[in-house]
């Protein structure tokens, strides 16, 4: 039994998750859940962001880890291999996800970091297509990857296999445009499970709220709900809102459909769109720029 579970998670971390994402993505697309928002520019950006980190960035980080860690931490290989499985699981789950919470939160709360994360929020839709959508710099400095690689070197590789697998399923599920969490709020006997679930992990309701283009409806909370695998960090730090509803619009209000290469490679490539956050000399945070008042024609 354990062997089969091991096998599932080994394959999930390899080819399994991309295949699951492709299947769900096809279902979402077939049901028209991207509406008319998936333009050619968005499509190229989503596909490049799905492919490049998987075939270039992650293998490179793993290779550099294998190369550098024995030099940086000599005689430390497998030094913590004695840690019992469930304790290792808890240490990595907290270490990995709390680090990602902070990485994510700081990209929203420190204005100079926002443009590295903006690409993930510019998508005017939710779903598998945009789940991997990130600027290349954000992907390269994805801080918890380095923490997890180090913990693997120190001997916690076996629990890492399970934590990363479960985390990938939860974060993928939270980005899906299929609102799979809805029955947990509407079916009476599932509601107690739903109450615990929405506080413990990210769900479509809480994570969609983070991707909302506005907070005016009382549902959107794009300045909060930063949790990735665990939502409990948002509860502890008071950055979360739970409404059990889904926002009416996604993306960013000041989105200018910037070129896919500028969104993927900023600041190496800049956008030509006037007034864009990604253009040369553009504002650091677009919504901090006061909107030009509309001229009211008086009769």
């Amino acid at each position: 039994m354990v062997h089969y579970i091991e096998l599932i998670f080994t394959n999930l971390n390899g080819w399994g998750l991309p295949v699951i994402m492709l299947i769900i993505g096809i279902i979402e697309f077939s049901f028209g859940l991207y509406e008319n928002h998936w333009t050619n520019n968005e499509r190229i950006l989503d596909i490049v962001c799905f492919v490049v980190p998987r075939i270039v960035v992650r293998p490179l980080i793993a290779y550099l880890g294998v190369l550098l860690l024995p030099t940086l931490l000599p005689n430390a290989k497998n030094i913590f291999a004695w840690v019992p499985f469930w304790w290792g699981f808890a240490i990595i789950a907290v270490g990995d996800d709390l680090t990602q919470y902070w990485y994510h939160r700081l990209h929203h709360q420190l204005p100079w970091l926002w443009r590295f994360h903006r690409t993930h929020h510019s998508a005017p839709y939710m779903g598998m297509a945009m789940a991997s959508r990130q600027n290349i710099i954000y992907t390269i400095f994805f801080s918890q990857i380095y923490l997890t690689t180090t913990l693997v070197y120190l001997g916690l590789g076996y629990p890492v296999l399970f934590v990363t697998g479960i985390k990938a399923l939860i974060t993928t599920g939270a980005h899906s445009s299929i609102k799979w969490d809805k029955p947990f709020y509407t079916i009476r006997w599932l509601q107690p499970i739903g109450w615990v679930m929405e506080r413990l992990i990210s769900t479509p309701a809480t994570h969609h709220a983070h991707h909302a283009d506005s907070s005016d409806d009382g549902v959107g909370n794009y300045k909060g709900n930063f949790g990735n695998m665990f939502f409990i960090w948002d509860i502890i730090f008071g950055t979360g809102i739970i409404t059990r509803q889904y926002p009416s619009g996604y993306g960013i209000k000041h989105y200018k459909q910037e070129e896919w290469y500028a969104q993927f490679l900023w600041p190496l490539f800049k956008s030509r769109r006037k007034g864009s956050e990604l253009s040369a000399g553009g504002p650091m945070v677009g919504d901090s720029v006061p909107a030009v008042p509309a001229v009211v024609a008086e009769a």
Binding site: P84, W87, A90, I91, V94, W102, I236
Partner: peptide
Amino acid sequence: LISIVLYALPVLLM
């Protein structure tokens, strides 16, 4: 500061 405690918590409990 609260996070430092949260990071240490599973290690301390172990």
